[in-house]
């Protein structure tokens, strides 16, 4: 539920209160999912960001259609917290997840070397896509935390955790 719109339970319903913004938000999402970066990696980074920001709504909503079409494995999704050691996460995915965590935990701790590793893995265009995606998802996750509350307990998303 939400404080803003009675009966609203999703981000899209709230964004629908501002049609122009909703359209712009959808356009950037469509562009990101249609980019050169593997959609499975983008979805894993989106969900990892959700966990770090305490947004359970992102885990409850359907997985990215683009990522599913690319072969996203739900068992791998459920193992996301173990990405540094689980061998189902390849080097490229780990490089992107490492940047995701650094971006969210201490963005000023990102180094030239780390960006260089990501660029070597997914290209300069991939770096722009991934960092723009992280910025977009950070907005989405914080939006959810601020404006959507848990439907069962009435607590905000930020007060609930439990996602992998």
């Amino acid at each position: 539920m939400s404080w803003l719109l009675e009966g609203a339970t999703t981000r899209d319903e709230l964004l629908g209160m501002h049609a122009g913004l909703a359209a712009g938000h959808q356009q950037i999402l469509d562009t990101l999912w249609d980019s050169s970066v593997d959609a499975r990696i983008l979805e894993l980074c989106r969900l990892r960001a959700a966990t770090l920001l305490g947004n359970t709504h992102a885990w409850d909503e359907p997985r990215s259609a683009a990522a599913l079409a690319a072969g996203l494995d739900e068992d791998v999704v459920q193992a996301l917290a173990q990405w540094p050691t689980d061998d189902r996460f390849d080097a490229m995915t780990r490089t992107c997840l490492a940047l995701t965590e650094q971006y969210l935990i201490d963005v000023h701790g990102i180094t030239d070397e780390q960006v260089g590793e990501v660029a070597a893995a997914i290209g300069s265009d991939g770096v722009i896509t991934l960092t723009t995606a992280l910025a977009t998802w950070e907005i989405s996750h914080r939006f959810d935390n601020a404006l959507l509350s848990d439907t069962t307990s009435g607590t905000t998303a930020a007060q609930t955790t439990g996602a992998p």
Binding site: L21, G24, Q27, I28, T31, L32, S35
Partner: peptide, 24 residues
């Protein structure tokens, strides 16, 4: 000039950014 590595992403970002400033 750096974001031009991914021009479609840049255009979509700029469009949303412009909406934030012009609407609401």
């Amino acid at each position: 000039t750096v974001m031009r590595h991914s021009p479609k992403v840049r255009e979509a970002f700029d469009a949303m950014y412009a909406t934030l400033w012009s609407g609401g």
